[in-house]
Amino acid sequence: MDFNTVIQVLDSTIRLSTPLLLACLAGLFSERSGIVDIGLEGKMLIAAFFSAAVAFMTGSVWLGLLAGVVSSMALSAIHGLASITFRGNQIISGVALNFLASGLTVLIAQTWFSQGGRTPSLVGGARFSELTLPFADSLRPVPVLGPIYADLISGHSILVYVAFLLVPLTWWVMFRTRFGLRLRAVGEAPEAVDTAGVSVVGLRFASIAIAGVLCGLAGAYLATGLQAGFVREMTAGRGYIALAALIFAKWRPWYALGACLLFGFLQAVALRFQNIDLGAFVVPVQVMDALPYILTVVILAGFVGKAIPPRAGGEPYVKER
């Protein structure tokens, strides 16, 4: 395998990790506040559709992004209404959102564009263009570091950089700010937050609103950055992989980065090499696709330390009697 191939695989690792990372951070905000969010998939999907649709109709990727974020937040709001306000089951609410998004996107796409549940291909300003970082071209001839900078680090759309910058930002918000302290507290012991005179409901809605924004970014990136338009079920289980990465990361931002890069790398390898010939036998592509899930099962079985979820996760807050 030559150096160029390595660079290419790593480059596509970064691209493929980005939606995972955004969704994973969305899940982190939500679950750290005690709201299990199985609906990451649905939120990404609906954001992917509306961002592509609006970007196509207006020709502006930014308006598309806005539409994606708004639609994702709308699903978050439904999730919040069902599981926070009405104290419903968070898993069921999340699964319902996934079904809703899955059906709604195809239905509207067919009604609006009549292209078999997809949007027309996006071109020009309706897509996120790739940013070239300063000096990328002039540094390219430098051995090793040149290609790494010019081809690996440079040349991604803005959302990629946003996603990676969100990791330190999330860490900082979670562990260095008042909001983060309260948010972590509400996921561990909502009664402590309540008796401290802070609104449990308010905090949880704030956190799922953030999750909505992040899922919106993830979906918009899928449809207007990674690819040029929406196709049905284009999230392809990324929301679930993001959840797996979140568990793998033990609900911590930096670990989430590592987990998402790993899962992104596995996807990139699967994409690049299809069937991997190891000489003795051939690893079929399906194995690579399944690897993130297999890894998660192995991790959950307790081989790599213990993953302790936020204590109040999944349970609606009811004052004890």
Binding site: L181, A185, A192, V193, A196, R311
Partner: peptide, 19 residues
């Protein structure tokens, strides 16, 4: 039944809500 966040430090528990 104490209203404390188990995996927070004493300081964090004390300031929670009155930061």
């Amino acid at each position: 039944h104490f209203k404390l966040v188990q995996n927070f430090s004493v300081l964090e528990n004390v300031i929670l809500g009155v930061e």
